[in-house]
Design a protein around this nucleic acid. Structure first.
Length: 864
RNA sequence: GCCCGCUUGGUGGAAUGGUAGACACAACAGACUUAAAAUCUGUCGAUCUUACGGUCAUGCCAGUUCGAGUCUGGCAGCGGGCACCA
């Protein structure tokens, strides 16, 4: 074969069509051994970005690798197509969310195809399609029946101008993103999922997920936040009319109770609201607190503020000791009891607060390192371990023992009890939005909340709604909203809230197992495919999405849908794709294609040579314009080059820096492989024409090549198993370098052939088009390379006859020895002492004290 | 603010506690070419030295160890998440 230039356009299209035509990656039914590869499905924004290219290349490479082991690989793809952007597009451009979404899906699917991803498209899921959300409504009703769903009041960000609820990201510096009007907090009655019922199970099961990254497990553990503490009752000196005599406080540090100097309650605590009825100043203060957005970050970053009430709380262990009660902006009603006691000496936040309001600071724990807490303005609170002081019956106890004792005493005098609490809160799933799954509930003035009967499903989202009036279009659509009550046949209204889009993504991995079933999923299929063997996605989902999915699986088990608890066996979390940022002199952001490098190394604008400020590399984002459009790359270099670049340099977990020169390096390697393949086949033909006598024994260089070949197979296989794709590529490049020489020098045609076959097979998961093409030229027929067996390393060729061993003196390198494999300590020592640098040391009068020897690695001579 | 990470040449990165910088990118030099591109070959952490070779180097400061990029503690910088973006 001659070596015509590699034409990726033709070749890639040919193979993409071949796979589609032969339905190569469709899985009809689960085989004996299944392997489920799943990447987080995308929101169909309509544009492919580099982050997509990265995740989907990772997943595809894993899927293609696993096919080499004879497994039935389930590798599906779908669209997480409900969500805010469709609604924003509707408001801004007047397009119908459903039309906009479907067009985006079409556009993105085309891009996915051109990446050569080996998906089973027959299982495609669109979550905004009735066929999907109908099943979701069934699940909702089953959860409701099991008592896993309930209604309660909860705070939301309210934009008074747009008359709508805002997401936290839509609140910028306390103002609505579109209206610019300060947001308020409003209390709305909403649907909640009882995820807290599974707090312990969600925590405990983390131990059974060894293939999850440690950091993700830790994050979830902290998020669930199980803590042992105490509920403590502070009697109010002058209780309010009709309210409890006791103020209930939860604390994770009850042992510091004798260091308490004040009590704080949340601005929306019932006592605070009661007091505000008769106190305008307090009412104003509460209003001010409620003006912040609802995010925890805002809350905690805000300046600590309190409002002193006239109320006093009695210390549980001393009737004559009273503590002032404040209403404070940093106390959260949703956690614990919405009330805390402040111990300034041992909590930084309490210390700040005490200094602000000039409250006593009473140290009760002694730092074992002798530091005594003093009242200097710069001192921090002491939060470490230690022994109790100034604490009556707790004196001399360490903090753990003191906690046990204090809880015991509180229980004795009926002033409190030990309690375990969780940071995890129930999941609010109500959204006051149109583009989401309708909640199948009906509000009847007579019967109350009534579920939509099974046979009346699906509750279909109405098309042709109007976004002209501010607020939720479902609220204004009487023809949809007004219904008859299924119980009493009287006039009733549909629930107009829709579900959080996390709801769809919490079970889609189950739907993929039987995507066209008339029930949410077929039990046998799920049993066969689940759990997902490897789930690939961004770290940003480490807590919420993954925790919700785990909870859903448990809840579905409780409803009898399935009988396992954990949906994802292992997890691969990939980093971001980053790029430098560019700004002109006025600070306006510039796209990379608007910028060029000048001769002196600085960057200037392409248009008029103005100096450009280069910022550090950060996550590609539209707002900073540091984006590179993948479709341009695909057009210029092709899918294989893009895929190779995504995997070749950076390990999956790290952030990847996009670089133009990096992509060109990959493009050159692709062409080099093409020439290498052509030349190898050419050489095989030339050699066979020579009619050489077949040699019976291998030459030295052939043995060396076989060693390289087999160690490469071993190394690359291991690297794929560990998802270290960058080192797999590096090893293949090393092999290619030597192989190029071997092709020219060797007369062993079968060995050249074996070398080429191995190289192609090892790279085929990453660059499927090129490898398929060369393979088909070599084998004379079109095959799907993925399904060919993965090569096995022959142990006979894995051991090198000689090794190089480093010799150190006191841990410093002094020479390297080349010795037979497994040379004994005696041999090594004998040779080591002959090394000039070592000899010199002893000539200077050093005496040998100790010899550290690690076979085939090092000898360290310890001298004095 | 709280929780979780990351930090190694000019750049991306490699390295079961055992020869730091594999494999690349960029740069430089050379070969081929009328020339350029492409390709091929070589050099390529800093520093001292004509050389042999030495010294210093994995964000910073301590510690453990015969030996630390790797383990422990502290600090700094950067990134992710914080419950209504997905």
């Amino acid at each position: 074969m001659n070596a015509p230039l590699y034409s990726f356009k033709e070749v890639e299209l040919k193979w993409q069509n071949f796979w589609a035509h032969h339905k190569s990656y469709e899985v009809k039914e689960p085989g004996d051994s299944c392997y489920y590869v799943l990447e987080q499905f995308p929101y169909p924004s309509g544009r492919l970005h580099m982050g997509h290219v990265r995740v989907y290349t990772l997943g595809d490479t894993i899927a293609r690798f696993q096919r080499g082991f004879g497994k039935t690989v389930l590798h599906p793809m779908g669209w997480d197509s409900f969500g805010l952007p469709a609604e924003n597009a509707a408001i801004q451009h007047g397009v119908s969310p459903s039309k906009w979404t479907l067009e985006n899906i079409q556009a993105m699917k085309k891009h996915f195809m051109s990446l050569g991803l080996s998906y089973d498209w027959s299982r495609e899921i669109i979550t905004s399609d009735v066929s999907y959300y109908e099943q979701e409504q069934k699940i909702f009703l089953d959860f409701y029946k099991k008592g896993l769903i309930y209604r309660k009041e909860s705070w939301v960000n309210w934009d008074p101008e747009e008359k709508t609820v805002l997401a936290n990201e839509q609140v910028i510096n306390g103002r609505g993103w579109r209206s610019g009007v300060p947001v308020e907090r409003r209390l709305l009655s909403q649907w909640f999922l009882k995820i807290t019922k599974f707090s312990d199970a969600l925590l405990e099961n983390l131990k059974d997920l060894p293939d999850w990254p440690e950091n993700v497990r830790t994050m979830q553990e902290k998020w669930i936040g199980r803590s042992q503490g105490a509920r403590i009752f502070f009697s109010l000196k002058d209780p309010l009319d009709g309210m409890n005599r006791n103020l209930e406080v939860f604390s994770t540090r009850p042992e510091t109770l004798f260091g308490a100097s004040f009590l704080c309650i949340a601005p929306n605590h019932p006592i605070a609201l009661k007091l505000a009825e008769k106190d305008e100043d307090l009412a104003a203060f509460i209003q001010e607190c409620l003006r912040q957005d609802t995010s925890e970050a805002t809350l905690q970053k805000a300046e600590k503020k309190g409002f002193k009430t006239a109320l006093l709380g009695e210390h549980p262990f001393d009737k004559n000791w009273t503590l002032p009660i404040f209403i404070a902006n940093f106390v959260v009603m949703d956690y614990g009891t919405g009330a805390v006691f402040g111990c300034p000496a041992h909590d930084d936040r309490d210390l700040d607060f005490a200094r602000l309001y000039d409250l006593p600071i009473l140290p009760v724990i002694e730092d074992p390192n002798g530091g005594v807490f003093c009242k200097d303005q710069d001192d921090e609170a002491y939060v470490g371990p230690g022994v109790l002081i100034h604490s009556e019956f707790l004196n001399g106890l360490d903090i753990n023992e003191a906690q046990r004792v204090v809880i015991m005493r509180l229980e004795e005098i009926k002033k409190g009890y030990g309690e375990i609490t969780y940071r995890l809160r129930d999941w609010g799933v109500s959204r006051q939005r149109y583009w989401g799954c309708p909640i199948p509930m009906i509000h009847c003035p007579v019967c109350g909340v009534v579920p939509v009967p099974q046979e009346a499903l699906p509750v279909v989202l109405p098309e042709n709604v109007s976004f002209d009036i501010p607020g939720n279009p479902l609220d204004h659509d009487a023809s949809w909203k007004d219904v008859l009550c299924p119980q009493c046949d009287g006039k009733a209204e549909r629930e107009t809230d829709t579900l959080d889009t996390f709801f769809e993504s919490s079970w889609y991995f189950l739907r993929f197992c039987s995507p066209r079933a008339s029930i949410p999923f077929n039990r046998n299929d799920v049993q066969a495919f689940m759990p997902v063997d490897i789930y690939v996605g961004g770290v940003e989902h480490a807590v919420l999405h993954l925790l919700y999915s785990r909870f859903f699986t448990m809840a579905l088990k409780e409803c009898g849908y399935l009988d396992f608890e954990e949906p994802f066996k292992s997890l691969l979390t990939q980093g971001f794709v980053c790029h430098e940022t560019y700004q002109d002199e006025k600070g306006a952001w510039l796209y990379p294609e608007e910028v060029k490098k000048s001769k002196d190394g600085t960057y200037v604008t392409l248009r008029d040579d103005l100096l450009v400020r280069v910022g550090r590399s950060e996550k590609m984002s539209k707002s900073h314009k540091n984006v590179v459009d993948p479709s341009v790359i695909l057009k210029e270099y092709g899918a294989d080059t893009a895929r190779l670049f995504m995997l070749s340099d950076t390990p999956p977990e790290r952030n990847l820096d996009w670089s133009e020169s990096g992509i060109e390096g990959c493009w050159r390697y692709i062409n080099r492989l093409w020439r290498l393949g052509s030349r190898a086949l050419e050489r095989i033909e030339i050699i066979s024409r020579l009619n050489l006598k077949s040699e019976t024994s291998l030459k030295t260089e052939e043995e060396a090549f076989l060693r390289l070949l087999n160690t490469t197979v071993q190394f690359v296989t291991k690297a794929y198993e560990l998802y270290h794709f960058n080192t797999a590529v590096a090893q293949c490049r090393t092999f290619s370098n030597d192989f190029a020489r071997f092709i020219e020098e060797s007369q062993n045609a079968p060995l050249i052939r074996e070398g080429l076959q191995t190289l192609l097979r090892l790279l085929s998961p990453i660059i499927p088009h090129l490898t398929s093409e060369i393979w088909s030229i070599m084998e004379g027929q079109d095959q799907v390379v993925d399904f060919l067996p993965w090569p096995k390393a022959d142990p006979k060729y894995l051991e090198a006859p000689t090794i190089s061993l480093s010799v150190q003196i006191n841990g410093k390198l002094r020479g390297v020895l080349t010795l037979p494999n497994n040379a004994s300590e005696e041999t090594v020592k004998c040779e080591a002492l002959k090394l000039p640098n070592v000899k010199q040391e002893f000539d200077k009068g050093a005496t040998l004290k100790r010899v550290v020897f690690v076979q085939n690695r090092i000898m360290n001579l310890v001298v004095v």
